[in-house]
Structures are given as C-alpha cells and as structure tokens.
Design a protein around this nucleic acid. Structure first.
Length: 497
RNA sequence: GCCGCCUUAGCUCAGUUGGUUAGAGCGCUAGAUUGUGGAUCUAGAGGUCACUUGUUCGAAUCAAGUAGGCGGUACCA
C-alpha cells in the first residue's frame, strides 16, 4: 500500500538543461547586470521589456508541425489553438515590437533588453536551455557607424565588468565578404544555397577543428573521434584553397585586406562588404579602439538573418580548470546587422544592427578570472528563542534591530539552543542575540560575536575550556541593543553601515 | 539525431571467480555538555544496488532491452 503511494509521487527533479540559481550567484549576477546597464545607458540606449513568449510565426519560426512541434523552441498552443513559443533571443521580439509600433517610435530606435531566453537543444557543459542575455540594438539606420558603435559598446562593457584590456577581443567580419568569397569559389546562386551554408558552418568550426578539419569539411567530409561522420561541402581543390586563403588570419602588422582584394575583385557584393569593413576599421581606429576591436575573417555567427557586419566578443585568456587542463571561455557575445527582420512584418526594409551578451557564460568566465562580483553578504543577526512563552519579547527585539536597518531575524524553528547556534552559524550570521530569564531580570541581553568566536575557537582544544570561556560573548544593557550590535557589525564589515 | 562510457546511502566511492543480514569516508540527527556554533568520543537514521525481462539452486555482480547521466559529434534561426 505504502509502496503504491510512493510510486505515484512525482520525482523531485529539475528538467535537464535547467538549473536553480542560489543567493550568492543571484547577487553577483545583479551586480553584473547593473554594470552592463550602466554602459548601455551611457551609450544612449533605452530599456524595453517584451514578454517571455510570442506568437510562433512572429519569432520567425514556422508553425510547428505535429511530428516535431518543438524543434529548437519551446512551444505551446493558446486556447484559440494559435501556436506560441518561448523567445530564443531578444532580437526577434524587438523586430515584432518595432513593426507593431513603427510610426510612433523615434528613428533610429535604440533600446536595450535583458532577461532569460530559452532554447530547446541538447544541453552541454556551460550550455543550458534557459540562459540570460543582455542586448542592445539600433533599428533604422544603415550607417556602419552603428555597427562600429556596437563593437565599442561590447569592449567597454567587458572592461566595465573587470576583464582587463588584452584579455578580450571583439572580432568583426562581414557576411557580404563571405558571400563574395563563395562567389569567387564558384558556389554562387540559388542552387548552391545549401552548400554555402555548409561552408559557413565549416568556417565557424575553425577554432575547434583547426584548418585541417575545416578543409575536410569543405571537401569530402570528416570522421570525428567518436566515429561520427559529417558530410562535407564537396568543393573543388581550387575553391577550398580560395576559402583557406581568406580564412587564415592575417598576421599582425599585415594589412588584413591584402588577401581579400585579390579574391574579391570580381565580386560586387564582396567589394561592398570589404568597403564596409574598411569603414568600420577606420571608425574604430579613430575612436582609439584598434587594440580591442579587430577584423577577423573567420567570424561567421548565426547565419540565418545576418546581412552585413557580424561581430563576436571573445575572451582570450586561459584558465586552468578543475582537471588541470587549460580552459578557454571563447565567445561570450556577438551580433551583427540584420536588415530584413522587420520587413518580415511590414514588407518595408528597416536596417538594424545589434549586440548580445551571454550573461551566464560571462559570469562563469569572470569567476574564473577572479573578477566575479562579490555575491556573499553577511547573514542576518539571529535572535535566539530561549523561552518559548516569551516569543513576543524576542519578536520585539528583532523588530528593533530591523527598524535600525540591521538585517535580523528571530529563530522560527522549534529546536533547542544548541541547534539555534548551529542554525546561526550555517546562515553566516555575524552575531546572535541571547536573552534568557537571567538576562531579562537584569534588563540585559547577551551578544555573541560568531565571527570573533570562530577565530577564538581555533586555539581552544577541549570542550570544557570552550564552554567556560564563552569566547566573544558579552552582556549589554537591553536599551543599547541596536548600538552594540552595530558596533559588532562595524568591526567586521567596516565599509557597510 | 549519431557514437562511446557510466548508473551502489544526501555527496564521493569500495564491493574479490555470481554465494548468508551490501560497506567506508564525508554529511545529517541525537547524546556526552537541563542555556552556547568549533574540536573529540559514542550512538542513530538513511539503500526497490536506475528500471524491466532473462540465465542460474542463488544476481549489486552475467545477458538483453528501457530510462537517466557524462563526454564527443551534428543541429543551434
């Protein structure tokens, strides 16, 4: 019987790819978000919040079919049977908002947005199905100055968060240049669209697979170490070498366009992209950001909707992981120009560009760098309950501390004094307030400084001495409670009040 | 999706060629100490050995299937 009931109970388990975030991390993240917000505001962006889910077609996702209703996104059906989906980024909802409110918005429209996004994909280390992004976008201008500004915004943000200059790089490329290269490689035209996609994906893997791996993917295909085979693009040797010449990063001091010009001379779109890159480089240089923002032909990014410049924010430092192996954090954000997103709704092309920061990933990186925001705050002062029939007295003491702006709580459990001390210890309380009948009769309270006490405990070995010494505990007049507690706090946390 | 490895207490893991009541460390609870967090000692709680089916006199151990986890790979608008 009991077993039957047990079998019917739901498992207390977190769905995969999701996670609980506890106090210290939330505090650290809030501090991060505040820093990011400050930079974005400083650049003149306005905040905007849109809902967590939208109509599926508004997100640019086709109506889920009944076989696979959740390909990549989490979807649900409204009571009128229309499909809704959780947002997978901040950009698609922005496009919807701009299209819906186009006439009354100032153009160009500049907004920032932060919040969770959801992706229904296989989770991996550092990859979750819910994570937080922080985006800035400028809608309604073709000017590459807007793109250059995004790169500078990204650089300033990383620095504001404590990533030292030289430990990150904003890399810039241009989809038009990529198109031009592929044109030169002989895979222009509608019939080669799939092949171009394969090429772009291959280039995107340069980091991980190296040049040899990319070449395999451009040609016949590649067999990875787990035995899985990835079909290649099937390009000719000439085409592969053209792309290879393009992708190999220009050495320091060399003109990054030297290779490009030869390859792109017959491609109109390629020339256009190259000109845009040159302009961005000039703007970046004029602003004094050349050491942090660099042209890099291997940057590809989310392929679907980008139409011009694309950028990626990369952390370049290495950290030794738990297993002793070096860990690189790599990309913590990216973005680019998407001139056709709003047109999906209105039919009218509205040029736009934006940058998106992966907050959780960046937070993990900052922690590794030792630059993570301090998430630990002192626990509350705990007022112990010595006589259960005097609860109102303890409640009054607690309220007095709270009124004085001191974080405090009365012990609300039912255990004895020893357990209450352990509770206070576990909460990280700086001190506890003790008032039994002895103290009450004298109009006093005992304050025990737990931080001081822990230090004193190190030099006490036997229990008898420990008990008799009552380290860091003292008696004060009840009326002086707030003042005396404040003194203890000031001793341990001089910067706070 | 594909390939590989893994699954024994809250956590980290032992568990011999299949053989009685499945163990350890840490953690947790309580006591020694009727009102004191540490240390020490003692005791206690906590397990359908992931699940199902099979082989066997007998399965945590062997086999198959399923689920979950980890890693790689693909996809990631």
């Amino acid at each position: 019987m009991a077993k039957k009931i047990k079998d019917n109970r739901p498992g207390a388990r977190l769905p995969k790819g999701l996670r609980d975030i506890e106090a210290a991390e939330i505090r650290a993240q809030n501090a991060m978000l505040a820093s990011i917000r400050k930079v974005y505001e400083n650049y003149g962006f306005e905040p905007l919040e849109t809902p967590a889910f939208e109509y599926t077609d508004a997100l640019g996702k086709f109506l889920p079919d009944s076989d696979r209703p959740n390909e990549g996104v989490f979807s649900l059906q409204d009571e009128d049977e229309q499909w809704l989906s959780l947002r997978y980024d901040m950009t698609a909802p922005l496009a919807r908002y701009v299209a819906e409110n186009f006439d009354r918005l100032p153009k160009p429209f500049r907004r920032y947005a932060t919040g969770p996004v959801w992706r229904n994909e296989k989770p991996g280390p550092g990859r979750f199905r819910q994570f937080t992004q922080f985006d800035a976008d400028t809608v309604g201008t073709e000017s590459v100055a807007a793109d250059a500004e995004m790169c500078m915004l990204a650089a300033d943000t990383l620095e504001a968060l404590g990533v030292p200059r030289g430990n990150f790089l904003i890399k810039v490329n241009n989809r038009k240049v990529l198109d031009g290269i592929m044109e030169a490689a002989g895979i222009a035209g509608e019939e080669n669209a799939g092949r171009r996609l394969t090429v772009l994906r291959a280039i995107d893997k340069l980091d991980r697979l190296g040049l040899a791996g990319v070449e395999q993917l451009l040609g016949e295909g590649r067999l990875d170490e787990s035995g899985d085979y990835t079909k290649g693009a099937g390009l000719s040797k000439d085409a592969i070498s053209a792309i290879r010449a393009f992708v190999v990063p220009a050495k320091d001091g060399q003109d990054p366009f030297a290779e490009l010009d030869g390859l792109l001379k017959n491609s109109e779109i390629g020339q256009e992209g190259r000109a845009e890159l040159a302009q961005i480089a000039e703007l970046i240089s004029a602003a004094g950001y050349s050491d942090r923002v660099k042209i890099d032909p291997s940057v590809v990014r989310g392929l679907e909707y980008y139409t011009g410049p694309v950028f990626e924010a990369e952390l370049t430092f290495e950290v030794t992981g738990d297993d002793g192996k070096p860990v690189r954090f790599g990309s913590v954000g990216g973005g680019g120009r998407y001139d056709d997103l709003v047109a999906r709704f209105t039919g009218k092309t509205v040029p736009a560009t934006g940058f998106s920061l992966g907050v959780s990933r960046l937070q993990a990186a900052l922690n590794a760098l030792g630059r993570g925001a301090e998430g630990d705050v002192p626990g509350p002062v705990v007022v112990l309950v010595m006589d259960r029939d005097r609860l109102s007295d303890y409640q009054a003491l607690t309220q007095r501390l709270r009124s004085a702006g001191i974080r405090a709580e009365m012990y609300l459990g039912t255990s004895g004094m020893k357990a209450q001390m352990k509770y206070a210890d576990k909460r990280g309380s700086p001190c506890v307030v003790i008032q039994g009948s002895d103290e009450r009769e004298k109009g006093e309270v005992q304050i025990k400084d737990l931080i001081e006490g822990a230090l004193a405990a190190q030099s006490i070995a036997d229990n008898k001495e420990w008990k008799e010494a009552r380290p860091a505990q003292f008696s004060v007049s009840e009326v002086a409670l707030e003042e005396e507690v404040r003194k203890v706090l000031a001793r341990h946390f001089p910067q706070s009040d």
